[in-house]
């Protein structure tokens, strides 16, 4: 795309992908984090990004945000090249990082107001939306306390609200349900489903809890050692692993080559 070209010149048609990652490579020194990763997130769909620890999930998500620059390949958010127009892309993305790092010297309300300022959310919208989210996630009454006094789950809720408050078109959620109580986790899952189905938001969702992935994801992308080893619906993956009717855990372990754990379990049980 030429430098003077508008970042919005190639917004996809409704129903098209909100995120397209194409042949993305990224290394840190001699360590290859992701290699030739390609996938897409269609509008209105929740795509699960699964993989063992160190598989490259977080690097992939950070590349989508423009937080790390791929060595090769391209990433487009609503048709906007993230490396060329990072600010325009970020304006349309909501992000919840894996390790929640908030400004703990702010109150929850101050943090959310701060994030709203960064995203340019108009005053009327934030006065309406922030209290709604606080009430929905049972944070109301705590919003004027310092975040340093929050539990891990409360911090996660603040991070979730910060990711959702500005009406993003793409959500990038790295372990978003970490530390949430069952009710809040249920609320978040339902909100994500509604955002996808009714508002056409595309969601890239990383988790190690395979039951959650199986329950809410429309598509799955499985990474192993920085490469995509399988993509598709749960049924597609079951067929591919030759485990039709099995749970996602068995499918996942089979596809990532970590299926036989009996020796490890036996050694650790002694």
């Amino acid at each position: 795309m030429a430098a003077n070209e508008s970042p919005l010149s190639s917004i996809p048609s409704p129903g098209g992908p909100v995120l397209e990652a194409s042949h993305v490579w990224k290394s840190y020194g001699s360590v290859r984090a992701v290699a030739d990763v390609s996938f897409s997130v269609p509008a209105g769909q929740i795509v699960g990004l699964l993989g063992p620890n160190g598989a490259g999930k977080s690097t992939t998500m950070k590349a989508v945000l423009g937080l790390v620059r791929p060595d090769a390949g391209s990433i487009r958010v609503l048709g906007i090249d993230v490396s060329q127009f990072p600010v325009e892309a970020k304006r349309r993305i909501g992000y919840v990082p894996e390790a929640t790092s908030l400004y703990e010297f702010l109150t929850g309300a101050e943090y959310l107001d701060f994030v709203s300022d960064l995203y340019g959310l108009d005053p009327a919208a934030r006065r309406q939306r922030i209290p709604q989210f606080l009430a929905g996630l049972e944070l109301a009454g705590h919003e004027n306390a310092l975040i340093s006094g929050y539990s891990q789950g409360m911090k996660q809720k603040v991070a979730l609200i910060a990711g959702l408050v500005h009406h993003p078109r793409l959500l990038v959620l790295d372990e978003p349900l970490n530390g949430l109580d069952p009710r809040s986790a249920r609320v978040v899952k339902e909100v994500l489903r509604n955002l996808a189905r009714h508002d056409g938001v595309g969601i890239l969702f990383s988790t190690h809890v395979l039951e959650i992935a199986q329950a809410i994801c429309d598509q799955l992308v499985i990474l192993r050692q920085g490469t995509v080893v399988a993509t598709g619906t749960v049924a597609d993956l079951q067929r591919r692993a030759g485990l039709a009717g099995s749970g996602l855990e068995d499918v996942f372990l089979s596809l990532t080559g970590t299926g036989d754990l009996s020796d490890v379990v036996s050694a650790l049980s002694r």
Binding site: L67, K90, S101, L118, Y119
Partner: peptide, 8 residues
């Protein structure tokens, strides 16, 4: 990373 992820 809050600043990095924001559109600024």
């Amino acid at each position: 990373q809050t600043l990095f992820a924001a559109p600024i």
